[in-house]
Write a protein that binds this DNA or RNA. Structure first.
Lengths: 125, 125
DNA sequence: CCTTGTGTATTAGCGTAGTAATACACATGT
DNA sequence: ACATGTGTATTACTACGCTAATACACAAGG
């Protein structure tokens, strides 16, 4: 369900947080949907259960998830089934800006970058 | 000369390392060019000099920079004045893949992403 | 010689991320 | 009642990123 890169330098719990936020915003995790259990995710990615738990806790603090003792966490209500396109785009704007800045430092043209994006998209649809 | 984001979660020394690598690959830092001094960069970005020094040391270990005691570090020889386009593109491929993966999780279309990239590029050329 | 400019080594300390092992509270199904 | 499934609290420990203060070695110019 999630894609984790342990050696990327980005903390695992943050990778989980960001991916849940995106999946909820896009409606791929709809209101009321149950999330994978802490132990299941921990086992699948060879990660400590508490690392996942901390990610879930942060999302619950944000109001994005809801907890039910003894049962899996679910997507909280009031999110609307899907965020507006502009709201979704805004979630990856910082990453886009960072990529463009890097491309500029590499003296690449907009066309070079567009081609790279295009190729990356086709890599495993 | 460099753009640092202290609160981004990416270690500062790594931000410096990556940016130097890109500027050298693009030829914007040519062979023999002197780099900003450790203290100068540290002051400019309100960062500890040792943090910058560690970044430079890593780049020297990679053979990208050369040190001359008492004088500024310079770009080492043998880099060629500019790396080939495909080699430069490869430097940001991981970032591109990550951005595309995020866009997919947000259920955005290739056109949405292309528009975002385009807008980001125009933001401050 | 001396001052000012390089980069570096050393030592210490702080905060955060992640691991690890254990125990608890609750819901569900038998 | 009991076993099994949730998420959580607690505590201790390690590793890393960064800061801090100090001192050193060398080059260039006065």
């Amino acid at each position: 369900m999630f894609i984790l890169h342990p050696g990327s330098g980005i903390p695992l719990y943050r990778q989980v947080v960001e991916q849940v936020r995106r999946l909820v915003a896009s409606g791929q995790l709809a209101e009321g949907a149950a999330l994978p259990s802490v132990r299941e995710l921990a086992l699948e990615h060879a990660v400590n259960p508490m690392t996942i738990s901390k990610a879930y806790s942060q999302l619950e603090a944000e109001g994005l998830l809801q907890r039910h003792r003894g049962k899996p966490m679910t997507v909280a209500g009031g999110q609307g089934s899907q965020a507006s396109p502009s709201r979704r785009v805004r979630q990856i704007e910082p990453q886009a800006l960072q990529l463009v800045a890097a491309a500029r430092q590499l003296d690449l043209s907009p066309a070079d970058l567009a081609a790279l994006i295009d190729r990356s998209w086709r890599k495993k649809p």
